[in-house]
């Protein structure tokens, strides 16, 4: 046998061994997160350095590009692989809780987080929030003409000039469901119909809405505060408006951590959750490019970051909103596909 063939065969054995080996079980925690990797990864790396626990993460893409970590959690539910689910919103964890896939755990560090943003039975704990805001192109829309309400989508002056992310996915689903809860189903359906009739461009994601507004392809659109902050930071000609101040209020979306039931590493899972809901992480996420809003009072933030207490927040019961999302979501999907509606 020639030397070249020996080397080739040895190489193939090495590759096979590498592929076949799951990592040796040192102390580790497996976290699935739908928080954008660019923001979540530094937090998880900091935890790794602080605790010495190896963090193995699965990050999510924007909603319309992959099945998402939530569905992976559901698909793995018979034999969970994840220890912690760090969700970018409070709705997806509700689906896991409803299916009995979450183990209650009240992190000691959760003290100081308002009661509206965590479950009393310890099934979910919210921290570090985003809000649904209007991002407007300042070169296309003078200051005195800017929108200030979600209802502005239906005004004739904005016909064919606005964008919204697909309501079948992501935080837009949560937002539209919250509107249905606040207005009632009939007015909610009228709103969706009005979006189509007024030529609102349905984009693939909040990130795409951000790009369309920043590029001046539309005048304005609703996005999350992290998308808006990134657009402002990049120097795009945009301004941020918290909608429905003094009226319906602005929807606040806390990030949420839950412990997965029957997970392989319960001890490290609790350590990670203790870290995630701490004031230290709230401050880090406020200072990061996502400019997330602390839920705790007294957490130092940069000048341009509001805390939740400083905005007119929409009154929401998140578990009830979770039920509404599950009820309405098939209708949102049909609306997006043009085959019907909620």
């Amino acid at each position: 046998m020639t030397r070249r063939r020996v080397v080739l065969i040895a190489g193939l054995f090495a590759v096979t061994a590498a592929l076949g080996c799951a990592r040796a079980p040192s102390e580790q925690v497996v976290v699935y997160t739908s928080v954008d990797q660019v923001f979540a990864e530094p937090v998880l790396l900091a935890f790794e350095q602080l605790s010495g626990i190896n963090v193995r993460a699965v990050y999510d893409t924007e909603e319309t590009k992959s099945t998402g970590v939530l569905n992976r959690l559901l698909a793995e539910s018979q034999h969970p692989r994840a220890d912690v689910f760090w969700s970018g919103d409070p709705i997806r964890p509700q689906i896991l809780i409803t299916r009995g896939l979450v183990a209650p755990y009240e992190p000691a560090a959760a003290e100081g987080i308002p009661a509206a943003f965590r479950a009393m039975d310890g099934t979910w704990t919210g921290f570090s929030a985003r809000a649904r805001v209007i991002l407007v192109n300042t070169e296309l829309v003078p200051e005195d003409e800017r929108p200030d309400s979600i209802r502005n989508y239906l005004e004739p002056r904005w016909k064919d000039r606005t964008a919204i992310a697909n309501p079948a996915y992501g935080t837009t689903t949560t937002h539209i469901a919250a509107l249905f809860e606040a207005w009632g189903d009939e007015e909610g359906r009228a709103f969706l119909t009005g979006l189509r009739e007024n030529g609102v461009r349905v984009a693939a994601s909040n990130g795409e809405v951000k790009r369309l507004v920043a590029a001046g392809e539309v005048a304005w659109g609703v996005v999350d505060t992290d998308d808006a902050a990134v657009a402002v930071e990049s120097g795009a000609p945009v301004a941020v408006i918290f909608p429905d101040d003094g009226d319906l209020g602005t929807l606040v979306i806390p990030t949420v951590a839950v412990r997965i039931a029957e997970s392989p590493n319960p001890g490290p899972a609790e350590a990670l959750m203790d870290y995630l809901v701490s004031a230290e992480v709230e401050r880090a996420l406020a200072e990061a490019a996502c400019r997330q809003m602390p839920l705790r009072a007294g957490v130092p933030t940069p000048q341009n970051v509001l805390s939740v207490a400083e905005i007119d927040a929409m009154e929401v019961d998140y578990p009830t909103l979770g039920d509404a999302v599950e009820r309405l979501h098939p209708g949102f999907m049909a609306w997006a596909e043009g085959t019907g509606g909620p």
């Binding site: 699935y32 660019v38 993460a57 699965v58 990050y59 999510d60 893409t61 924007e62 992290d226 490019a289």
Partner: peptide, 18 residues
């Protein structure tokens, strides 16, 4: 596997707001 993203996966997961 968790922690085992390829370059193409990393590009896509970072694309959101990086």
């Amino acid at each position: 596997p968790p922690g085992g993203a390829t370059l193409a996966v990393r590009i896509l997961t970072l694309e959101a707001n990086a």
